[in-house]
């Protein structure tokens, strides 16, 4: 099989301006991947499937990964003017202080595709795509028209991660029920406090159950008062 660099070159020759990037995998598995731009991903996918040498006609696995907003705090040296009183005289001195600055690296949702070839019997070639953010710009092109196997798996990602696949023929929830809110596989998912509780003496569960009961009771009292 071609190396990842050769595949990248082939893609760029076939789809001009594809903007493919190689993402290194530092682990011992060394399964490196290609990051596609959502705008050109569909054309790239068609090329990968139809190219005679690559013939990646089998899309095995499609999955989502959630990368939430990351708060990074770093120490920065800052030089600034400080007014000080030295020997009874007020003067301005330049002083260097170390300051902890926090910045938020915006999160995104990532979709990973594992491709193999059933005719050439090689693989995997791993593709990744990222959404712009995790809240409102979560659209990505659907690969279902290229590989049918993406149909249910993309529905699952839509259901559990909330990625909206443009061009999917039937984008509905698949594992959770219709009308369910939120996306359970996201890292910041909070499970709703709506379960029926059975008393077990396991203390962590007991504490949770007590909080649940108090909330339920408060809700019931509120309901009775109205």
């Amino acid at each position: 099989m071609k190396t990842l660099e050769e595949i990248k070159a082939a893609i760029e020759a076939a789809v001009p301006g594809a903007g493919v990037e190689i993402v290194q995998n530092p682990g011992p598995a060394a399964q490196h991947s290609l990051r596609l731009q959502p705008g050109s991903a569909f054309e790239v996918a068609k090329f990968l499937r139809d190219d005679a040498e690559l013939a990646l006609n089998f899309l095995s696995n499609v999955t989502g990964v959630d990368w939430p907003d990351k708060e990074i705090s770093e120490k920065v040296k800052v030089t600034r003017a400080v007014t000080k009183t030295v020997d009874g005289v007020e003067q301005t001195v330049e002083e260097t202080v170390e300051e902890t600055r926090k910045r938020v690296e915006p999160g995104y949702l990532e979709v990973v595709y594992h491709l193999f070839s059933m005719t050439q019997k090689h693989g995997p070639v791993i593709l990744r795509m990222r959404t712009e953010n995790r809240s409102d710009k979560v659209e990505l092109p659907s690969m279902t028209p290229v590989w049918r196997s993406a149909e249910f798996q993309e529905r699952e990602i839509f259901d559990l991660y909330g990625v909206v696949f443009r061009g999917h023929p039937d984008l509905r929830r698949i594992l959770m029920w219709e009308g369910f809110k939120d996306h359970p596989m996201r890292r910041d998912y909070v499970e709703p406090d709506d379960y029926d509780y059975e008393p077990t003496a396991h203390d962590a569960v007991l504490a949770k159950a007590k909080a649940h009961q108090a909330a339920q009771q408060a809700a019931a009292e509120k309901g009775a008062a109205q």
Partner: peptide
């Protein structure tokens, strides 16, 4: 604790 990275095994 495996080193950071990813793997697909089938």
């Amino acid at each position: 604790r495996p080193k950071p990275g990813e793997a697909y095994g089938r």
